[in-house]
């Protein structure tokens, strides 16, 4: 009888081990070029809202996490082929992406999208709009049938407006507010659009245990208010 209990315990232990072993290190993939969400600090490390959030979530889920950067363009293919385990890069939850990967529950609510231009009287519908490739913003402009120019990085979309290549940048408001700081030549248009859902972590569809672990950690951060504190600290979105 004693032996039976022991072996059951051992079995339960090894089942737990199997998950722990497959995720003894969880690799967190991000872009590192989208302040305040994620960016590289002066020391060259990943920093920002998502760095702090990710580290806290890993601590709560008792996981060891490691940060890697990947270009936005190939961020989903590299997740599904297993080069890292999580996408945490300000990625809005959309149906289109959900077909390929899974998302945890949202860790920031849907945030308005805004325009940045050189003057207040720019009409995005009649002009050229710059957006980052593969974002919901680029998809929205294309859907409207407006003129869209796409760039690989968020930085280039703003440079395009300065250079006169585009009339306005279309991006998350939180990113544009950060970009506006200390700049006198750019203004934010009053017009705002609500597109897409909240932002969540992207996880492989087969990785259900990891998804459950992060979902639980996000719930606990929502409940004790620490998530709202982080959102306010980095000014990335409205709070829950």
């Amino acid at each position: 009888m004693k032996r039976l209990i022991l072996s059951t315990a051992a079995l339960a232990f090894t089942a737990g081990m199997a998950f722990a072993e497959s995720h003894s290190v969880v690799r967190m993939g991000t872009e590192g070029a989208y302040p305040p969400w994620n960016f590289l600090n002066d020391a060259g490390e990943v920093d920002g809202f998502e760095r702090e959030l990710g580290d806290e979530l890993c601590a709560r889920a008792e996981l060891t996490c490691e940060w890697v950067t990947n270009e936005w363009d190939s961020i989903i293919p590299n997740l599904v082929s297993g080069n890292y385990d999580v996408i945490i890069a300000g990625m809005s939850i959309t149906d289109e992406r959900d077909e390929v990967i899974d998302f945890t529950q949202e860790y920031t609510p849907a945030d308005p999208t805004a325009y940045l231009a050189l003057s207040m009287d720019v009409d995005p519908a009649g002009g050229v709009v710059a957006a980052q490739t593969g974002t919901i913003q680029a998809g929205y402009i294309a859907q409207q049938g407006w003129t869209l120019v796409e760039f690989a990085t968020p930085e280039e979309t703003i440079a395009a407006v300065r250079a006169g290549e585009a009339d306005a940048v279309f991006a998350d408001k939180s990113f544009l507010v950060g970009a506006l700081e200390g700049q006198s030549d750019l203004v934010m248009l009053e017009q705002e659009v609500q597109i897409g859902g909240g932002v969540g972590m992207g996880i492989r569809e087969s990785d259900t245990e990891l998804k459950a672990a992060f979902d639980a950690a996000i719930t606990s951060m929502k409940e004790d208010g620490s998530l709202n504190e982080l959102i306010t600290k980095w000014a990335v979105a409205s709070t829950f």
Binding site: T153, E181, Q183
Partner: peptide, 30 residues
């Protein structure tokens, strides 16, 4: 960089991009 290896052009683009005082000790323009 498509393979995740950070080469000189990646870093030049990253370092040269506009840095606002909120996120760095060394803010500068483009």
């Amino acid at each position: 960089f498509l393979l995740g290896v950070e080469d000189i052009v990646y870093w030049a683009r990253e370092l040269g991009g506009t840095k606002t005082p909120q996120f760095t000790d060394y803010p500068h323009g483009d």
